[in-house]
Design a binder for these strands. Structure first.
Lengths: 340, 340
DNA sequence: ACAAAATATGTAATCGATTGCAAATCGGAG
DNA sequence: CTCCGATTTGCAATCGATTACATATTTTGT
């Protein structure tokens, strides 16, 4: 193993002290032109790479951020990660990834990463944490460096980034209404999930505003997954008085719903209009292409990372934005149609 | 900010030296029963958490592994990450994520993470690296701690984990043959990709073995994406003598292919049988459910992490497995049917 | 030309854990 | 009771960078 060279080596070659080398590297303005050149040259000659472990120890910064997902295997998050990573790497930060399940199952606390200097902050994409875990988070001395994205915790006061869930839901319902639909069902996310409640609530409210009937059985409990969408379809089929349109709380739900319907020879949108939420990549390629509410996952990631970095780099300042709510938009494709 | 307690604090409370505390924590057998108890008590009282930055510096280990993806936004990798993370966290290691594009675009070398003590090893899921980047990797002193998964570099000698690409391709072709198909097309991955070449090559070979005709235009160039699948469908449609079955090098290709066909009112599998490769989650829910070659992404991740950890923890030993080739299996669903 | 201010560099302490070596303690044999 | 080896513990150096403070050097003003 070739030993990599250290600041000392560079200092020796450049005939200056390690302090000067350090300064040259992190704050070039304070050293003279000539030493700056000598040091740069020495760095090149020695092939010096900074040792992050040493710097991290000395500066009390890990220069990395932990992203906590509910479930690593869920592709919904990949674009968000891309957004986060872009911002972080631009600031010289690295991105650590773990799943809340894995961390908690192993008996660790979520804040361990912060406590033991592995991460300077964390972005949590999981609103389904146990209340006692949340309480611990809130009371932790590092709670200032915790931020939620996509989902959030009702009643807690963490900074967060989310999309316009209510507005998106309203837009969806209005779209179906404009197409002539008057009997509209909703397939929800999982019980206890904040997005589920927000969207369901907005759905009910909007139907009320439009003076539409809403039978209790038109709210079908699901959980964002394909499988739940299939089950919801079964439920829809058995209804006496079938709604002519269905607003699903996620694209996956909508796809499962449509897939299952097709097994029973129902046609979308001819027999029923179906909408999703999220506008994942596949929505466009699905058959039929899915009408959905688009949320910009890249921007969610970027915004979250920016907000967190602000808090890490200037922990004592007041930060203008506490909850960033990003716009959504209606994407009309072929899974919804006028009521004929 | 509450300062977290250090080894010193624990030592003071337990009335022993820091050396003893350290030993108690990392190697309990060498300390006496009584001090072990005193130290554990002191740890509890002080709420001590080890400072990883300090340990990393002293031990010259970062206790983390970098996973390099070609593209963070690609959901294909999420399950693999889950597998990697499981193994790593079990060994007290963390998982850093970055994309090769981002790293290289920012002017850094891939080995920087290794050189500057940010990571003890790396798993690369990107076989599309530039030859000069590969050469640099090979000649780096840390090349022993680099491992490829899913894809690999032809001609280079890095340890790797992959699935049975040839066997899978053969199985796919045989399946179509058994259904009576004699004119079979192939939609390939991106030019230059090792998986693309391996699968194409195996495809051609197997057709030869079965004495099947293969017109050059029956090999349609693609790139694993949905969009490429759509284009491939266009190409297929314009053929005079259309193959009755199509083997796509990825599920995404197959989905795009089918989606596009349906826009032109072709029915799958009635008008043409279509197969994918990978068996991603969505394959099952697609309409029609996709016949595919399944690769176990969780196991790919776990195997890769295990192999890398072996090499990190015992760098000088000979390691039994250099290239792990994991089994694939045929999953028959409804996108393929007998030629009638 | 000289004092004061501004700029550039060096010295050495520090971050917090690990570990080689030395010292202390213990147990048992003679 | 003494001595020897084994077991336990402590001392202090170390990993490699950063930075407060001291010192040296240059510039500026009069």
């Amino acid at each position: 193993m070739v030993k990599t060279s250290t600041l000392q080596d560079v200092a020796r070659v450049a005939k200056v002290s390690t302090a000067t080398v350090s300064r040259t590297l992190s704050n070039p303005d304070v050293v003279s032109e000539s030493t700056r050149r000598r040091v740069s040259e020495a760095v090149k000659v020695t092939g010096y790479r900074i040792n992050r472990a040493a710097r991290n120890l000395r500066t009390q910064r890990s220069h990395s951020v932990l992203v906590l997902l509910p479930d690593l295997a869920n592709p919904f998050f990949s674009t968000i990660l891309e957004g986060i990573s872009r911002i972080l790497s631009r600031q010289g930060y690295s991105m650590l990834i773990a799943s809340t399940k894995q961390v908690l199952d192993s008996g660790d606390r979520l804040t361990d990463y912060l406590d033991d200097a592995r991460a300077d902050g964390m972005i949590i994409l999981d609103g389904g944490l146990d209340p006692d875990v949340v309480e611990m988070l809130e009371n932790a001395p590092q709670s200032k460096r915790v931020l939620f994205a996509c989902e959030w915790i009702d009643g807690a006061n963490f900074p967060s980034v989310r999309c316009q869930n209510r507005q998106g839901t309203r837009t969806a319902v209005d779209h179906l209404y404009d197409l002539g639909h008057r009997k509209i069902a909703h397939v929800t996310g999982p019980e206890g999930n904040v997005l589920m409640h927000t969207r369901k609530d907005a759905f009910v409210t909007e139907l009320g505003k439009l003076n539409l009937e809403l039978k209790p059985e038109w709210i079908i409990a699901g959980d964002f997954s394909l499988a739940a969408g299939c089950q919801a379809a079964q439920a829809w089929i058995t209804l006496d008085d079938r709604p002519t349109a269905v607003f699903c709380a996620s694209d996956q739900l909508a796809m499962g719903f449509i897939a299952e319907l097709s097994r029973y020879s129902f046609k979308v949108p001819n027999d029923v209009s179906v909408m999703g939420f999220d506008d994942i990549d596949l929505a466009e390629q699905f058959i039929p292409p899915l009408t959905s509410i688009r949320q910009d996952r890249l921007m969610i990631g970027e915004t979250a990372a920016k907000m967190l970095m602000e808090r890490i780099l200037a922990p004592n300042e007041e930060h203008s934005v506490h909850a960033a709510v990003l716009p959504v938009s209606l994407v009309v494709r072929e899974s919804t149609a006028s009521l004929n």
